[in-house]
Amino acid sequence: MKRLATAAAAAALLLPLAACGNDDAVDPRADVDSTLVVYAAASLKGTFTELAKEFEAANEGVTVQLSFGGSSDLVSQISEGAPADVFASADEKNMDTLVGDDLVAGDPQDFASNTLVIVTPPDNPGDVTSLDDLADPDLDVVVCAPQVPCGSAAQKLATAAGVTLAPDSEEQSVTDVLTKVTSGEADAGLVYVTDAKGAGDDVRTVDVPQASQVVNTYPIAVLSDAKQPSLARDWVELVTGSQGQKVLRAAGFARP
């Protein structure tokens, strides 16, 4: 009987330890990082910020960390090991770079397209009426750098129109171009129609007939090193789905 009592006591002591062991197995799951890191072209800032709020509301405990910039700069960061789950580019060329380096999981999906337009300050101090005026060396003109999608598009647009641009500044993102115009630092700039629409009364727009010949298609993809692959796929589904497309159309993006 004494031996049985001793065994029972030992078993009783082991039960709390077993329970603690089960708790320890569960706790790490409660500490799993639930931050989704999205790298996206600067021109997507307004739409992706809106979609991030919807995504967080639909996924309790999830935070969407957005990083915007020129697509080429973002590709460089990702290639150098920057932690990101999703990448959305303002052109196919930069996405192809990541695909070629095996940094993309699956096939990228096209979700939007964009074209360029001239913007000036509201009072149009340079009296800009066409793309030809952007070749005037007396005007302060700003465009995106050639390696950035909006810069590559600007060069193609100028070629299509037979115009040699004379920019005073080449920026690393379309939002930088827009800022220089809205702040009065430039007489005119080339930005996407979505950026011009988002700026509202802070700019005046001048359409370019040849713009329809130069269309930038936007692809999105889950990255191969994503720490949150499931959430990343859900984000891509949101962007390419009906709700994401509704937000994009409202901002002025066209279908891919």
Rank of each mutant, 00 (worst) to 15 (best):
D123L: 05
L157C: 04
V141E: 03
G126I: 01
D127E: 15
G126S: 09
P146R: 11
V142I: 12
L157N: 05
D140F: 13
F111Q: 11
A145T: 09
P149Y: 08
A135Y: 01
D136C: 03
L134N: 02
G151F: 10
F111R: 10
A153V: 06
C150M: 12
D127Y: 00
V148C: 10
D123H: 03
V128F: 02
G151H: 12
T129F: 11
A145W: 09
T120P: 02
A153M: 10
D133C: 00
P125L: 02
V119H: 01
A135D: 05
C150F: 11
P146I: 12
F111I: 15
V148F: 11
T115F: 12
S113V: 08
V143H: 05
P149W: 08
A153I: 07
A153C: 09
P121S: 08
D123S: 07
Q147N: 13
Q147T: 13
L139H: 01
D132Q: 07
A112T: 02
V142P: 03
V141L: 07
D140R: 14
A112Q: 04
D136Y: 02
I118S: 05
V143R: 00
Q155T: 13
S152G: 15
L116A: 05
V148M: 13
P121K: 04
P122T: 03
V117I: 14
F111V: 15
C150K: 07
F111E: 09
G126M: 05
Q147V: 12
L139G: 02
Q155M: 11
L134C: 05
P149N: 09
G151D: 09
N114D: 15
C144H: 11
S113L: 06
A135R: 06
D140Q: 14
